[in-house]
């Protein structure tokens, strides 16, 4: 207790009061019991604005224990403002150990990516979700979308994909690509790139989704079927990249475009910073990469 007492600095463990955490845990349990179903919950005001991951933060706060090791990523990176501030928030309010190493973390909160390293059975991935309703832009009435989910009337979802093909010749949606979970509920996987969609399928880790402003929690339990929607004659295809990561040479990771100067210079690098670093430490080098040294850090 002395360790926690020292670290709380006047906050309850992990900021939220115990009643709230219990309420959120009940919602999480229900979400796990009904894979892909959006469970309403009494989302709280958090000391950060909506859009900064208040849903994910509440889910993390509700499941975090003193022995957990937390990793926070934003678009794959551990060092962006959003990731850094959420990590600091839990360091301060829960005093838990934090890490950037995917393999070491027991809880990973993410905004818009799934780490490249395969997740394990003892890990939980917490997604920050801006808009949980996959049917939202097709059917604005919440009463109607709930009915559509209840009756599994998902023709509308394919209308959206149809529109893409009609306009672009292929399904142009590259992120927040809708999936069917456990053959029952259509789910918005949050704005992860569709590159990451196959990683959700039969994942060993528990996946939890929290939408703070929209007050919804949903889940994909470990080893659950997750299928990206498509047409027979336009099957789902994960994004492929033409070149390897400029720094680590990886050919199978999701790449971000980085503008290097104002004359059109650019390079493509792993969006998962920890993955890239690990590979460089292991000696992999891309065309523009430099060996990792203590000095470089």
């Amino acid at each position: 207790m002395s360790r926690t007492a020292e670290n709380y600095r006047g906050y309850n463990f992990a900021y939220l009061d115990e009643q709230t955490k219990r309420m959120i845990r009940r919602a999480i349990l229900k979400a796990i019991a009904i894979p892909g179903y959006q469970v309403p919950f009494a989302s709280r005001e958090m000391p950060m604005p909506y859009g900064w991951g208040t849903g994910g933060v509440q889910v993390t706060a509700a499941i975090l224990g003193p022995s957990d090791v937390l990793k926070v990523i934003d678009q794959g990176a551990d060092d962006t403002t959003n990731a850094v501030s959420i990590r600091q928030f839990f360091e301060k309010t829960a005093g838990v150990e934090t890490t950037t190493e995917t393999g070491k973390a027991s809880v990973i909160q993410t905004r818009h990516r799934i780490p490249e390293a395969k997740l394990q059975a003892n890990q939980v991935l917490v997604y920050q979700v801006p808009i949980p309703e996959p049917l939202r832009f097709l059917e604005p009435r919440e009463t109607e979308t709930r009915t559509l989910h209840a009756l599994a009337e998902y023709g509308l979802m394919h209308v959206r994909l149809y529109e893409d093909i009609a306009q672009h010749g292929h399904i142009a949606k590259t992120y927040a690509y809708p999936v069917l979970v456990a053959d029952r509920y259509v789910m918005d996987p949050s704005p992860i790139p569709k590159f990451d969609n196959p990683k959700m399928h039969e994942s060993a880790a528990l996946q939890l989704f929290g939408a703070g402003r929209e007050k919804r929690i949903y889940a994909v339990p470990p080893h659950t079927k997750v299928v990206s929607l498509d047409f027979e004659d336009h099957p789902f295809e994960a994004t492929k990249f033409e070149q390897p990561c400029a720094l680590c040479g990886a050919k199978d990771s999701y790449l971000d475009e980085v503008i290097t100067d104002d004359r059109g210079g650019r390079m493509f690098v792993c969006s998962d910073t920890h993955h890239c670093e690990t590979r460089r430490c292991e000696g992999h080098l891309g065309p523009l990469g430099m060996p990792v040294t203590e000095a470089a850090e």
């Binding site: 023709g155 394919h158 209308v159 529109e163 009609a166 047409f231 027979e232």
Partner: peptide, 21 residues
């Protein structure tokens, strides 16, 4: 907000047609 083709196709997709062509 949906094209004429999508409007007509909705019912077909609603009863499980998954062939764009």
């Amino acid at each position: 907000g949906v094209s004429a083709g999508g409007n007509i196709g909705e019912r077909l997709m609603g009863v499980g047609d998954r062939h764009y062509g």
